[in-house]
Amino acid sequence: MSVAETTIAAPRAGTAELADPSAVRRALRRVGGWLHASVRYPGTLIAGVFVALVILAAIRPAALTRRDPYATAPAKMLQPPSAEHWFGTDQLGRDLYSRVVYGAQSTILASLVSLSIAIAVGVLFGVIAGYVGGATDAVLMRLVDVLLSIPGLLLSITIVTAIGFGTIPVAVAIGVASIPTFARTARAQTLRVCSSAYIEAAIVSGVTPAGIIARHVLRNVFGPVFSLALLEFGRVIMAVATLSFLGFGAKPPAAEWGSLINEGRSYLMTSSWVPLLPGLVVVLTVLAVTVLAARSEKELKR
Rank of each mutant, 00 (worst) to 15 (best):
R67A: 11
R235F: 12
T167M: 06
R94H: 03
F233K: 06
A288I: 00
G175I: 10
V170H: 02
T6Y: 12
M1L: 12
S111Q: 03
F87D: 00
E297F: 04
M238L: 15
V225T: 12
L45G: 09
L124K: 08
L230Q: 05
H85N: 13
V291H: 00
L277D: 01
A183S: 13
V54C: 05
W257C: 07
V170F: 03
R265T: 04
A173Y: 03
V204Y: 10
I261Q: 06
S266L: 12
R235K: 12
P180I: 08
P11E: 15
Y102A: 01
T290M: 12
V193L: 03
V204M: 12
F248M: 06
H216K: 09
V101E: 00
F50M: 06
G43A: 11
I46G: 04
V132D: 08
I212C: 09
P61Q: 04
Q105Y: 07
A214K: 15
I46Y: 04
V132C: 11
L78K: 08
F222S: 13
V217K: 03
A183I: 05
V236M: 05
A186E: 07
S272M: 14
G133F: 01
A197G: 14
L284G: 00
A173F: 02
A120S: 12
V123M: 07
L109E: 00
P80C: 07
I8F: 13
L153T: 15
Y97W: 15
G32T: 11
V240L: 04
I128G: 03
S22K: 06
G43C: 05
F245I: 02
E17A: 08
G122H: 08
V172Y: 07
F182I: 09
A188L: 10
L18F: 11
T190F: 09
V281S: 03
A47G: 02
T181R: 13
S156C: 06
L18Q: 14
L53W: 04
I117S: 03
R192N: 14
Q105C: 11
G14M: 14
K251H: 13
L109P: 01
I108H: 04
A27Y: 15
S22A: 09
G103C: 07
M141N: 01
S205N: 12
S244N: 08
Y97K: 08
L155I: 01
I8N: 12
A177C: 12
A138R: 11
F87T: 02
A4D: 14
N262C: 11
L300N: 08
V146Q: 05
R40Y: 10
A23P: 13
A288S: 15
G264C: 08
P275G: 09
R215G: 11
Y41R: 14
P21H: 03
V144W: 05
Y102T: 05
L300G: 00
R40C: 03
P278H: 01
V274T: 02
L96E: 01
G206T: 10
L277F: 10
G134T: 11
A120E: 06
L231G: 13
V283I: 13
L96A: 00
A104S: 15
G48C: 09
R295A: 15
L78P: 04
P69L: 06
L28S: 07
L140S: 01
